[in-house]
């Protein structure tokens, strides 16, 4: 009996969210007097998971799994959970993990709670805290089934090293065919994604037009940040829909969120509120964002942001 965690890879390398999920699973295992087993697909370095507390890795090597596909992947994780007789299964909140989770829940007859932000407050009954109402509240939720599936919210737990001797075991479950064929994947590989980024720089309608987005991009580049935008900016076609964050767009749970020329409407804030530190730059001191932010500058983005970018460049050079 162990805690099973699905550790996602990107081109053979573990994602940060995978390490976070293992760290979190280790905390549950300690609480329950159990151990952590990870399941990884086509990973180049499965033993690395020992750093975060996995004592075993079920290592799946299978060319038919080179491209993510929810049904076969859910089946692999399900087989791993059954193999380990896992009581608790942990996944991250990446788009792919969220895609496979409900399929996995049905196959394991596991009660599933997503957007979980803490280690279970109690394991009998099994109660976890998750966000609800798009980050406007939390719900302490009991899972009543024998097997429990937890979707860990991004950046909620962090990476915790816990060096453990880790055994890598080959695991080759049967993989069902999928009724879905992936025809093409269109992904910018040189840019950090909003889901993975530690820092997100976001622009709103206050930037006046798409021609001014160099401001946002330059600042993001210095910080190694992902770029995002408010809903009207994507509705107006200034930026791609994939950058739209908020209640009806992507959620953001970064360490630092910098909002430039964004008023801070309730729907915008709902989506970005899980970010740990929020900075707002806005000409209007009455903008609602100032009530939600940790740090603020009342000022014109066109003047403030270039100076901030230059000074950060100097700061980074000094601290490199």
């Amino acid at each position: 009996m162990s805690i099973l965690v699905y550790t996602e890879t990107e081109k053979g390398k573990f994602k940060k969210a995978a390490y976070e999920a293992v760290s979190y699973a280790k905390a549950i295992a300690d609480k329950m007097g159990s151990t952590v087993t990870a399941v990884a697909v086509n990973s180049e370095n499965p033993e690395e998971l020992g750093t975060y507390g996995a004592s075993k890795v079920l290592n799946v090597v299978n060319d038919s799994l080179n491209t993510f596909n929810a049904k076969p992947y859910a089946s692999v994780v399900s087989s791993a959970a059954q193999n380990e007789n896992a009581q608790v299964v942990v996944i991250s909140s990446s788009a792919d993990s969220r895609y496979l989770a409900p399929l996995l829940a049905v196959s394991l007859e596991a009660g599933y709670v997503s957007n979980v932000v803490e280690v279970p407050s109690s394991t009998s009954p099994f109660v976890v805290k998750r966000t609800a109402f798009t980050n406007k509240a939390f719900a302490n939720t009991e899972i009543t089934t024998a097997t429990k599936l937890i979707g860990l919210s991004s950046n909620a737990f962090g990476l915790v090293e816990s060096s453990t001797s880790c055994e890598v075991v080959e695991f080759n479950p049967e993989v069902p065919s999928s009724g879905i064929t992936v025809e093409s994947v269109d992904k910018a590989t040189d840019k950090v994604t909003i889901a993975d980024a530690d820092i997100v720089v976001s622009g709103g309608r206050g930037l006046k037009g798409p021609e001014n987005w160099g401001l946002v991009e330059d600042l993001a580049e210095v910080l190694g940040a992902a770029t995002a935008c408010s809903k009207p900016v994507s509705d107006l076609g200034w930026r791609s829909h994939s950058e739209h964050v908020g209640q009806t767009g992507k959620p953001v749970a970064s360490n630092l969120y910098i909002a430039i020329g964004i008023s801070g409407a309730i729907q915008h804030l709902a989506g970005i509120n899980s970010s740990k530190v929020k900075v707002v730059i806005n000409t209007d001191p009455e903008a609602p964002f100032f009530k939600a932010a940790d740090y603020g500058i009342v000022g014109d983005a066109f003047e403030v942001v270039p100076v901030l970018t230059e000074k950060l460049k100097a700061f980074k050079a000094q601290n490199a």
Binding site: K136, A137, A139, T141, I143, D294, G296, I297
Partner: peptide
């Protein structure tokens, strides 16, 4: 398979620190 035991609201946030432009 799940049931909500209780809800809570996020702790109130401290005031923003304003920095001069």
């Amino acid at each position: 398979e799940t049931s909500v035991q209780s809800f809570e609201k996020p702790a109130p946030k401290g005031a923003v620190k304003l920095v001069d432009a």
